[in-house]
Design a protein around this nucleic acid. Sequence first.
DNA 1: CTGAAAGCGCTTACAG
DNA 2: CTGAAAGCGCTTACAG
Lengths: 332, 332
Amino acid sequence: MDKPTITIYDVAREAGVSIATVSRVMNGNANVKPATKEKVEKVIADLGYRPNAVARGLASRKTTTVGLIIPDLTDQYFAELARGIEDVANMYNYQIILSSSNGSEIKNDLIDNLLGKQVDGIIFMGNQVSSEIEERLLSIDLPVVLTGALDTQKKLPSVNIDYFNAFRDATLHLIENDHRRIAFISGLLSKYTKQDYKFQGYEDAIAQHGINHDDKLIFQAGYTYEAGYQLAQAVKTSGATAAVITTDEMAAGVLNGLTDLGLHLPQDFELISNNSQLTRMTRPAMSSITQPIYDIGAVSMRMLTKLMGHEELDDTQIELMHGFTTRDSTAK
Amino acid sequence: MDKPTITIYDVAREAGVSIATVSRVMNGNANVKPATKEKVEKVIADLGYRPNAVARGLASRKTTTVGLIIPDLTDQYFAELARGIEDVANMYNYQIILSSSNGSEIKNDLIDNLLGKQVDGIIFMGNQVSSEIEERLLSIDLPVVLTGALDTQKKLPSVNIDYFNAFRDATLHLIENDHRRIAFISGLLSKYTKQDYKFQGYEDAIAQHGINHDDKLIFQAGYTYEAGYQLAQAVKTSGATAAVITTDEMAAGVLNGLTDLGLHLPQDFELISNNSQLTRMTRPAMSSITQPIYDIGAVSMRMLTKLMGHEELDDTQIELMHGFTTRDSTAK
DNA sequence: CTGAAAGCGCTTACAG
DNA sequence: CTGAAAGCGCTTACAG
């Protein structure tokens, strides 16, 4: 039934060499006479030999596999990050093992699974890093990169933008458009997380203009479109005339919710979102912070390949440039 | 530096049994005296032993790993499928190796990589299955399930909806709304693919009402939002007054494109899309065929687990129910 | 119910 | 430049 799988032994026999030599040519080891190399390569091609990565992984203790921890596959932001990660992983011949928590909190056993699979490294993306997970990631003996995430101690390698200044600028933009009651809408806030830095930027901007912090203008909910949509009524009631929103799905929900409540954006309400393809798909299209999402993913993975290769890194806390794009949910 | 990894030998020594016994308790083998089982389990817990899945995979020839071939991570439709797949995979303790072609055509070496990794099965999702890939998937000695895809010979196990009738109904809906010039917008069409069945449904509906086929109303482009947006001008010029569109990203693009050209939907133009979360995010929200995307993924993965477990399947060509949801891009 | 032994398919010092 | 041998960490008949 099952075709006998062809192994390194078959290649060795056919080529009249030892399996060590076959292994050497497969691994590009220089110490092989060109003639034998050619011979072996021909046999490999003829037999259609495909090395068993599992055996290889066991023998070499490297699986050329990385774990990707992702909160939600259907979130545009994470999907775009993942795309950058995937492309670079392919480039360096790493495969990705998916580890998704699908909306619920990221748990320790996801990491256990990945360790069991002997991944060579881990990419962690998420809106926050719980202290439990942070401890765990710091304690395991494996390269880890946080993609679009920060640990509270800033000890783990990470790739991000400057959330503080990005949201500070966004808020200032709204203040310049004459808003005084500006809502800050995000997922749950906890200290020293990405969302918290965004919040600090918001606070800094309003303080600078003598605007008092008003708890009623701070909204915390889930990150989803639904959560945002549900929030619209409360946002309207709060008397806010504008909002900065930390995630796009949520921003789209708020936008549509407000529209469905009869508000016209940007005339009645201005809104700034956080940049993914979604910003272009809504109507009005959402003005947003621009961040190089794909690049954040790509740079993260590149960093991880370096760490896995024990290369020296000048900087393990990378911040990529961000900007601001005016679309149609702000007056200018 | 590296903490010495603790292995099955450590557990065996500590528990005073052979490694075979440790292996047996880990694998839930019944033939172990409860007392020894307990003892071993305690040692495993105490030592924090984590079995090496790679060694396990090599020894048992099963890696509890499945390959997921996905054209584009950032496409909502595929992402939702993947989510269903992931959840069921977790449920059955399979891990997923991602294999994305990121927009470009799915190539043979993606499959090679997965085979090299000794995956136990493959889930293939894609808008089409090229004949090269179809041959390959048929020839490999491994369970394969097509998720939201069909091979031309219908030999491979697959999970889909009835695309013909879904698009037939959608087209009839537009005809009932008094349209005669209805555009069909999709990715590239080729015979016996999913898109082709949709197209046949469209053709059948118009033929039934004596509407002549008009090549000018058939649009083929990429599947992306951008592709759809670019198409809007041509669609408008064609004199079409309505459209059925095979993918959501594309539909959102057409919708926004037409809107930006000054058309008001549904008054000036009616449009039916193909159902993902995106249908709710656009304005107007898109009327669409409804299909249980998450379930298609989940059922696919469940089917694959059965195939991998050599279980009998009554039916390997599964069609899930579809429906139609009127939102705001059609008059009714 | 349990253990000794072989084997899964590779890589990697070591020796020459 | 090449090979013999050990070993990676498990599972799985086989024997008892």
